[in-house]
Computed example of a mutant assay.
Amino acid sequence: MNSADLLADAFGRVRETVHDAVRRLTPEELTERLDEGANTIAWLVWHLTRIQDDHIADVAGTEQIWTAQGWADRFDLPFPVRSTGFGHTSKEVAAVRVDSAKLLTDYYDAVHEYTVDFVRGLSDADLDRIVDDNWTPPVTLGVRLVSVISDDLQHAGQAAFIHGALRRH
């Protein structure tokens, strides 16, 4: 297994967790909060997908799937089109509403497909490319991809936890 295969496998695990977290949930359950300040499953999945979309498009030098494929219009959220959910308030979290889990998974799958196509084309040497020199040490492509995977899995795990809590109610 090479590095590209390893990264593709990791992103595949994110996909599995995302799908499991929203499976068989109603729109009401997707936006239910465990308490008044908690994130919702809809927001968590939307946010992790937006971050992945934003970061992969940035390192690939392409337009985000969010705008390129019309997902911003389909979601019709009350945020600027470039919003990823980073720094959202409780009120903004509550504003992420969907008609079905399918909207969330379809957007995630579009981003996932693009991501996997991108990482499968990488060589080990590509992973050493500096993609952000605002940090010390500068961030390489490999570090950025692992960071996205880590962030995705944390948010997908939170969504899975909420799913379990809702099902136990």
Score class of each variant (00 low, 15 high):
residue 27 P to W: 01
residue 142 G to N: 07
residue 161 F to N: 12
residue 85 G to D: 02
residue 92 E to S: 06
residue 68 A to V: 01
residue 121 G to A: 08
residue 130 I to W: 03
residue 28 E to P: 08
residue 70 G to S: 04
residue 23 R to A: 14
residue 132 D to A: 13
residue 27 P to I: 00
residue 126 D to G: 02
residue 139 V to R: 15
residue 7 L to S: 07
residue 10 A to I: 00
residue 136 T to V: 14
residue 148 V to C: 03
residue 97 R to S: 09
residue 115 T to I: 12
residue 132 D to G: 12
residue 13 R to Y: 09
residue 134 N to P: 00
residue 142 G to I: 05
residue 40 T to Y: 03
residue 12 G to T: 10
residue 16 E to C: 08
residue 33 R to N: 08
residue 167 R to Y: 05
residue 20 D to E: 14
residue 52 Q to C: 13
residue 46 W to F: 11
residue 143 V to I: 05
residue 28 E to D: 15
residue 84 T to M: 07
residue 37 G to Y: 04
residue 14 V to H: 11
residue 134 N to D: 11
residue 11 F to R: 04
residue 135 W to K: 13
residue 155 H to W: 10
residue 91 K to L: 09
residue 88 H to V: 00
residue 122 L to R: 15
residue 90 S to W: 01
residue 61 G to A: 11
residue 52 Q to Y: 12
residue 118 F to R: 05
residue 69 Q to W: 06
residue 78 P to Q: 07
residue 66 W to M: 01
residue 121 G to F: 06
residue 6 L to G: 01
residue 86 F to Q: 09
residue 165 A to M: 13
residue 90 S to E: 11
residue 125 A to M: 06
residue 100 S to T: 13
residue 70 G to D: 02
residue 84 T to Q: 09
residue 26 T to M: 10
residue 122 L to A: 08
residue 11 F to S: 03
residue 54 D to S: 14
residue 122 L to K: 14
residue 110 A to N: 05
